Amino acid sequence: MISVCIATYNGEKYLEEQLESILPQLDSHDELIISDDGSKDGTLRIIDRYTAKDKRIKKFKGPGKGVIANFEFAINQSQGEFIFLADQDDVWLPEKVQTTLEFFHSHPKIDLVISDLVIVDEQLEVIEPSYFEYRNVTIGFLHNIVKNKYIGAGMAFRGRLKTRILPIPAKVPMHDMWIGLIAAYRNKSALIPQKLTLYRRHHNNASEIDTKASFFQQLKWRCAISYVLFKRIFFNA
């Protein structure tokens, strides 16, 4: 069973296109978890229209505390053996689920994967053909503590990782950084080189490709995530 987790908030412009790219890749017993964080636009109408015709979609009211808490809530609802994270404004390429599952099945010791993405604009025109090349993405715990490259739009992980991921500490910069590092600490993460997602960039994105935060702010983030990781890994706190 697969669980796809989407955290929505005012995503009416691109959400339908994303849903149409995901649903054909899911089997009848899979689930699509949508946690909405209080959208004020037409997002809920779109979700309700899809839930009325597809029982695989499960709609939840999010906690109303921002994107990290919203994804945490969605992940907490999931029941799948494999959990995929999905942004509300991207597009999955048709082979994403199959390619990812094949990788997991051939690498039973890997708990988390990141697949490559094509960075596109609002009209899906290519900005950068490879996120991995653009960001010089590599796996590894220490490397990603210093400069975290784990990205939720390309992320999938085994359900057994949930007990180590949750709860997500409030002080982490983003949920995907935290999840990736949890897997990386035990050398359980890997990269899938295939480009499986069109990663859409526009002025309303919740995250940035290249952070505009100051060096001091980035240092604070690294210290904060290192501290909570140390507590979780060694004291299970």
Rank of each mutant, 00 (worst) to 15 (best):
Q25V: 02
K96D: 00
P63W: 09
R186W: 14
D41N: 11
D30W: 08
K59C: 10
Y50H: 13
G159N: 07
F141C: 01
S21L: 08
E31Q: 15
I127R: 13
H29I: 07
A170Q: 14
I46W: 12
E128Q: 14
L161F: 11
S130Y: 12
A86F: 09
L181P: 04
K13F: 11
R49P: 01
S189F: 02
Q123L: 09
R164D: 15
I209G: 03
L85N: 06
G38Y: 08
L23R: 02
Y14T: 03
F73C: 06
E133T: 09
Q218E: 14
K188P: 01
P94H: 06
S21C: 08
L219Y: 13
V120R: 08
F73E: 09
T211S: 15
V4I: 14
E20M: 12
H29K: 13
Y134R: 12
I114T: 07
E16V: 03
R160P: 01
T8L: 06
L101R: 02
R201A: 00
L32G: 01
A183I: 03
L93N: 06
K171Y: 03
I110C: 02
F235K: 10
W221E: 15
P63K: 05
H202G: 04
G62R: 05
D89T: 08
I2Y: 04
S115M: 07
F103S: 01
I2C: 02
H175Q: 12
E31T: 09
S35C: 15
W221H: 15
N10H: 03
L26T: 01
W92L: 12
F157H: 05
Y9F: 15
E72V: 04
R45H: 12
L142F: 14
K147C: 06
K149V: 02
S39E: 03
E31C: 07
D176K: 06
V118K: 14
I34K: 09
K188L: 10
I165P: 04
E72D: 12
V91S: 06
G154Q: 07
L44F: 04
G42V: 03
S35Y: 08
R160G: 13
G62V: 04
L93R: 15
